[in-house]
């Protein structure tokens, strides 16, 4: 018998212990923080930041430092090689190709998914089937990458003209009287088709966050605009978009950062072949498949550098907000 109540019970007890432990930690912390509260905020702030700070240090800060160090060492991480890995990265013949593709991904995925998500959120807002309609767009997010891979291989599959098509895209082409295409073969179009997959997944994220933001627009504002007799498109551009600007920025930034890191789509659909590779995919290959820790680490550091423009933008944003608050 494969189902053992004792073992399953033990697992569920683990869950209970975990939640009790968590509640105890949170409760004690908030209790203690209530006691030490004083006009000076520093100690309270440290207390509030402590759980996140400790976990971030072991989970991300230490690994980030380790990666930076590794990038100056050779493939087996034993001897110091200075900037060799970085020199290799920029002289490597395929770097141009992966850079071009990464740029395409980072430009297109955030803009397209945000545009679709926003448009859809506005269109279905306050309609009768809103909940159902939203779950349709949300569904791709709920499907695992394994499932998404199969779904899209069914869309892009190719069979020659004389046989039955199994891919939807080619069947449509054939119905319209065209020749079936090998979608994933010719660059740069193949990258576009891969990008479509991530847009399909991320639009749900944009839609949910933006929809929540739209709902937070005070109804006085929309009512006032409506009384002024604005058209739907005026309402969209002059009321909705400005009111949800912070949420829009959050969505764009989050998807951009996520897109820089993402490689599952590329890895499962083409394996980075046919000139579709992106930096994150190369990083994974070098660090885990080719046993070239130094080069993999250098690529990871490079990814980190690519995000600095967004970080600077955030710095500006935070400063602005402070000024406004004052």
């Amino acid at each position: 018998m494969s189902f053992d109540f004792a073992i399953e019970g033990e697992k569920l007890m683990m869950l209970v212990y975990g939640i009790i432990g968590f509640a105890a930690v949170m409760g004690l912390l908030l209790l203690a923080l209530g006691k030490v509260d004083s006009p000076k905020d520093r100690w309270v702030a440290i207390g509030f930041l402590a759980p996140a700070g400790i976990l971030l240090s072991i989970g991300l800060i230490y690994p980030a430092i380790r990666t930076l160090t590794l990038s100056f060492f050779d493939s087996s991480s034993t001897s110091f090689v200075g900037l060799d890995n970085y020199v290799w990265m920029f002289t490597h013949a395929e770097t141009r190709e992966t850079l071009r593709n990464t740029a395409l991904w980072v430009l297109l995925v955030p803009t397209l998914s945000t545009a679709v998500g926003l448009l859809y959120a506005v269109l279905v807002d306050r309609t009768r089937f809103e909940s159902f309609a939203k779950s349709l767009i949300f569904m791709p997010m709920a499907i695992s990458f394994v499932g998404a891979g199969i779904i899209w291989s069914f869309v892009y599959a190719y069979r020659p003209t004389e046989s039955d098509q199994i891919g939807l895209a080619n069947q449509l082409v054939v119905w319209l009287g065209g020749e079936p295409q090998q979608w994933l073969l010719e660059d740069p179009w193949n990258t576009m088709f891969l990008i479509a997959v991530l847009v399909w997944i991320q639009a749900g994220f944009a839609m949910v966050v933006l929809s929540a933001a739209i709902k937070a627009i005070p109804s006085e504002i929309t009512e006032a605009a409506r009384l002024d007799g604005v058209t739907s498109s005026q309402m969209f551009w002059r009321v909705t978009v400005p009111s949800i600007r912070p949420a829009l920025i959050v969505v764009l930034v989050t998807i951009s950062v996520g897109t820089l890191k993402v490689f599952d789509v590329v890895r499962t659909m083409t394996g980075g072949q046919f000139r579709t590779s992106v930096i994150a995919n190369e990083m994974y290959n070098y660090a885990f498949r080719y046993d070239e820790d130094g080069k993999g680490a250098a690529l990871a550091v490079f990814l980190f550098l690519l995000v600095t423009p967004i970080v600077f933008y955030q710095v500006r944003l935070v400063r602005q907000r402070r000024k406004e608050a004052r």
Binding site: I20, G27, L28
Partner: peptide
Amino acid sequence: LFALVGVAALAL
């Protein structure tokens, strides 16, 4: 809260 902490300690 103290009751909770007590239970957690026992559990551990």
